[in-house]
Amino acid sequence: MRPFDYVRAETTSDALRADGRIIAGGTNLLDLMKLEVETPERLIDVTRLDLREIEAQENSLRIGALVPNSDLAADERVRRDYPVLSRALLAGASGQLRNKATTGGNLMQRTRCPYFYDTAQPCNKREPGTGCQAREGFNRILAILGTSDKCIATHPSDMAVAMRVLDARIEIESPSGETRLLTLDEFYLLPGDTPERETVLEPGELITAVHLPEPPKGRQAYRKVRDRASYAFALVSVGAAVNVEGGKITDAALAFGGLGPRPWRDAGVEEVLIGETPSAAVFDKAADVLLRDARGFGANDFKIPLTRRVLKAVLSELTGVAQ
């Protein structure tokens, strides 16, 4: 770990004024700093800021950026109205990590790509221009959607998948005092030629909250497939909210983990479903759309058929129609 200046922010404006890297739970940042994958010169500790409330607002919920993952998962409103979010959080990490990891920090998690983690390996995300060792290397956990020639990393968060299902918006405060709200779609970037840029967050900006809009209609589910029974990153995960009325799917929101460089959502999948009578054929068509551009890199090829199976099982569970 490189030496750094440590600054404890007492207020949000302190944090916005200080020029440096934000640390909250630290469960991923310190992990990476120990390996010198991350080498910030200054750390701004924001854990004393007053961003720990989950506030009910009109038909929505405002989750402070410092709300720990465990509190968010256990919040009675979240359990009742946004179960996909509770489920996703509880499927991630461990009890200890969820107690420390924060809502804002979880969104900022970096990939678990093993070549990114090892500073002796070339990696375009860590050191732009050095090349991607993962493409032709051991890429079992890496992406099949949204990849570029430069990078095939996956975003590891479970929580962010559920947030994407729920059309959450990220509240960001800038040093000039402005606040903007971004969807996860707007927030996360695809790797393209600049895999080192993962979000649109500008230097000095701070995530202050996440807003959940009115709960989606219908039933929600989060299903995660992993190599061991617990405490492992997703091979594939599916978060979903689906409503069926009068025998037809009226609303559908689906997002996927383990597949892409950001929590993946594809409006085309939902378009295929909405207005249809749920059936195995419709589910298959949704999978066709989702996976039309999917590409495996060898060790992760299995994710393509596995995603289809999990997607269909989740749709079947939520619509009550056999696959």
Binding site: P114, F138, S230, A232, F233
Partner: peptide, 25 residues
């Protein structure tokens, strides 16, 4: 253990990616 097929190095060199059984297993 996964070895990189070009360098031979151990790719999954930690307890997050080398999956020993946990309680639930």
């Amino acid at each position: 253990v996964e070895h990189d097929h070009r360098t031979g190095h151990v790719v999954n060199d930690d307890l997050a990616e080398y999956h020993i059984p946990v309680h639930l297993d």
